[in-house]
Structures are given as structure tokens and as C-alpha cells.
Design a binder for these strands. Structure first.
Lengths: 125, 125
DNA sequence: CTAAAACCTGACGTTGACGTCAGAGGCAAG
DNA sequence: CTTGCCTCTGACGTCAACGTCAGGTTTTAG
């Protein structure tokens, strides 16, 4: 009876992760540098990832796009995949939520201002 | 009959502009460096602005916050205060509008993801 | 076996909107 | 006159998420 130690499944290399998530190989290495990814290593030293890392990297990208820093995302990830949180983390989550919401409001206001300008310029042939 | 040449009114100095618009003095100088502001000069070389420059600076800040670069804002300002536009400028305006709208959508998606995490962590005591 | 493709570490370069420091005037009040 | 605040020019520093190059090893395709 073979021993199955923590899902031995098909591991993928960094190129496949990058292509799958639509980012550069350099970016994936950078995420590791920031403590967001902790891949295993092959005997020769190449990084090996579980296939669902692609989903994780997409999530990371989404958080970056929302203006979160690497360290914030690093705080966030344990909540993401363990569900466990202390009060400080929950406060951080809500604070980031507020920040993003405020940013959305700012962008919508900017859109309105741009639309005013567009309306004016459309009126002037 | 006195000749009124382009509103001789009370001109203000850079500090008042900065405080009024809620930005740093350095920022106001930077805007000039980028061609967004063209203040007059006092005999001694100090910058003098019309009071409505405060409103203009607020607008500039709003555009920066929306992700526009200095050069885009520089293209935008003539439309803002003259209303005149060529087809290329109108295309640029619409392109920036699309970009901001896409960014809003991304942020809302990120908000949803964060809310998922928050929901999970609120379920785990 | 060999050449191409993918991977490695390490380190410097990029970009944009300012911050910050240095050194030198200018300007109203007491 | 001088104290104190504001302003000037010029120039280097910052921060974050990578880009990019160098020089070398590993894996894969034929």
C-alpha cells in the first residue's frame, strides 16, 4: 500500500504558472521573494508548484491591481487559505476594503468630470 | 475709463494655492514643470496665480488619482478651459474614459474577492 | 549527441509623482 | 535692524513592482 504524502500529484514549473496566470516568470519569482509563494524544489533546484498556484497567482495579481502592497497581501494570504484570523487581521481586511471602496468612489467622480469635458467638447464642433 | 486686462484681481502666491487645494508646494511647482500651470511672476520672481487656480489644481489631482499621466492631463486641459477639440483629442478622452471604467470594474471585482475572504474569516471565530 | 528552450542566481535599470535637502533671496511686523 | 516666514532654483532621494541583462545549468525535442 503506497503512502500518499500531501498530494504528490503533477507539479508544474514556473513557466507554466506564469503562462497560466498571465504574468511574467520574473513576477512569479518576485512573489516568492515577497513571501507570497513557497514552492518546492526539484533535486536540481528548479521551482515546483502545485497546479492551483495558478489560481493563487491570479488572486495575488487582483490584489496588486487593487492597490495592496506585497506585505498586505502576505498578511492576507493566511486568511485566504486557512480561514483563521485574529482581530488585527480582520481590522486590516476591513480597512483595505474601505480604502478600495473610497478609490472606486474617487474614480467614479473622475469619470463624471471627464464626462463633463466630453460633453462640452462634443457640443463644440 | 480704466482698461481691465484679463481680470487684474487679487493674485495669490504658491502657498495659498497649495493650502487651498490640499497639496504640497512642491506638487504645484511640479505641475508647472509638466506644463499644467503657467503662473505669472512678480518683479522679484515669485509665482502669482489667479484664485481659480485652486479649482484647477483640484481637477489636476483628481485626474492623477484616476491614473492619468502628466502628458495626458496636459492634452486634456485645453479641452477643459477652451472647449475646443480635434478628433484625436476626443479619441483620447474616450480612451481614458474606457481605461478608468475598466479599472473601476477591476476594483469592484477585487472588492468582491475581499468580501469573500471577510465572510470566511467572520464565520471562523 | 546536440541544439534549442527553459530554468537558475545575482544585480542593476525603469517609471512617475513627488519628498527633501542646500543655499540664497524676499517681505511684513516689531 | 532683525526676526521669522515664505519663496526661489537646482538637484538628488524614494518607493514598488517588476524589466532586463549576464553568465551558467538543466530539461526537452529530434
Amino acid at each position: 500500500m503506497p503512502v500518499t504524502e500531501t498530494a504528490p500529484g503533477p507539479l508544474i514549473r514556473i513557466g507554466e504558472v506564469a503562462r497560466g496566470a498571465g504574468v511574467s516568470v520574473r513576477a512569479v519569482r518576485y512573489y516568492e521573494e515577497q513571501g507570497l509563494l513557497v514552492p518546492r524544489r526539484s533535486p536540481s533546484g528548479q521551482r515546483l508548484y502545485r497546479p492551483d498556484t495558478v489560481t493563487l497567482v491570479r488572486f495575488i495579481q487582483q490584489m496588486y491591481a487593487a492597490g495592496l502592497t506585497s506585505s498586505r497581501i502576505a498578511e492576507l494570504l493566511p486568511c485566504w487559505d486557512s480561514g483563521h484570523t485574529d482581530p488585527g487581521q480582520r481590522a486590516m481586511l476591513r480597512a483595505e476594503r474601505e480604502r478600495i471602496q473610497a478609490k472606486v468612489d474617487d474614480l467614479r467622480a473622475a469619470l463624471d468630470r471627464l464626462d463633463e469635458v466630453i460633453a462640452i467638447t462634443d457640443a463644440h464642433p
